[in-house]
Simulated scan of single mutants.
Amino acid sequence: MIDRLIENIQKEINLTMEETEQLFDKIFKGEIDTDSLVDLLDALDKKGETPEELAGATTSMRKNAKLIDVNHDQIVDCCGTGGLGKKIINISTSVSFVLAAAGLKVAKHGNRTATGKSGSADFLEAAGINLKKSSDNFSNSLDKIGLGFLFAQNHHPGMKYVMDARKILGKKTIFNLLGPLSNPAGANIQSIGVFHNKWIKPVAEALRNLNCKAAAIFHSDDGLDEISFTSTTQMIELCQNKLTNHEIDPKDFNIKSKNISDLEIESPQESVNKVIDTFENKFLAGKEIISLNAAPALKISSVVDNFEDGYELAFELISSGKALEKFDEFINFRS
């Protein structure tokens, strides 16, 4: 059966959600050899993964993960797919502190960087978090301060079976998309930046197929898996099972910063330093980019009614010192 599915993909025949789930179950159990996996991932990339295939693969990845039960009806995650070789501050991780300061329950799922200067795990480790214990502390941290970190390597053991194939291919694959879709705490509100605009709609449709409560999927026109303050950003919002297109224009937010280069860093520690400066109101570019990226998550979580109000609330949470308080509370949390 598996050989037939791989052959169909090579013939550019789309798989159903169920077929893809079965195929990826085999992958995550280590039942497909590396050479076959290289052929499979390459064929999927050349064909182009459909929303149904993304949903099926995500279902399998979630099922084969080490999951964490939570006692909250609404859990938020904000992350990017990465894979762009960025060397700017950790935006989505910083947004997590703003969202928690707004009273949301945030399950930040992340990993080390593979191509850039600082992934969310690198950032938090530099800030003082013990990554090995982060999952053990997660539930108490989420309950008590509204924020917990899920280090991807602690939760997706099946990913060890795809490492060699990904290295051989040396390019982005479906797995760059699956990580943000496979939160081990079952986040049902998701704000996700993708590495290319062609993935905005398929990822949004996949999340709809997976019964996600609400989501915002975006890619900036200057090539970031973030909302940019130097260009417009294309976004699809998922709400009540309906997809709505948006174009986010930084001109609508009276943003003064003009250069993405102001956000550049060379190490995780430099990212930590710039984020602290941001939360201490010493770094306007950081304050504006983090507020801009917090806005969609605040809207889809029903904290505010529109993106402009989301931006203003995020900006105020930073200005008032509440984001810094949440950062300090999280970094110093001991269960």
Rank of each mutant, 00 (worst) to 15 (best):
G82P: 05
V162A: 08
E49V: 14
M159L: 14
R62M: 07
E264F: 11
I168K: 14
Y311Q: 04
T20H: 05
D33A: 12
P268E: 00
K322E: 12
E18W: 09
E266M: 14
D143Q: 10
S96V: 04
K242L: 13
S191M: 07
D164H: 14
I227D: 11
N183A: 08
L37G: 07
C79M: 09
H155D: 07
N8I: 01
M235H: 00
C212Y: 12
G116L: 07
Q190C: 02
H109V: 03
L238A: 14
D42N: 12
E280K: 15
N137G: 01
E49K: 10
A185V: 00
R166W: 09
L54C: 13
I2T: 15
C212M: 14
Y161L: 10
I174Y: 09
V70R: 00
S271N: 10
K47A: 15
V275P: 03
K160Y: 09
A214I: 01
A314I: 05
L41V: 04
D69S: 12
R166T: 11
Q190I: 06
K63Q: 10
K258M: 09
T244F: 07
E12T: 12
A215F: 05
I192E: 02
V304W: 04
K86D: 06
G286R: 00
P180N: 11
F333W: 00
E308M: 02
A65P: 15
N183Q: 06
G83D: 06
S271H: 11
I248R: 12
N209L: 14
S92T: 09
A102W: 10
K326L: 05
G85C: 10
E247K: 14
T34I: 15
N273T: 14
N111M: 10
L210S: 01
T20D: 04
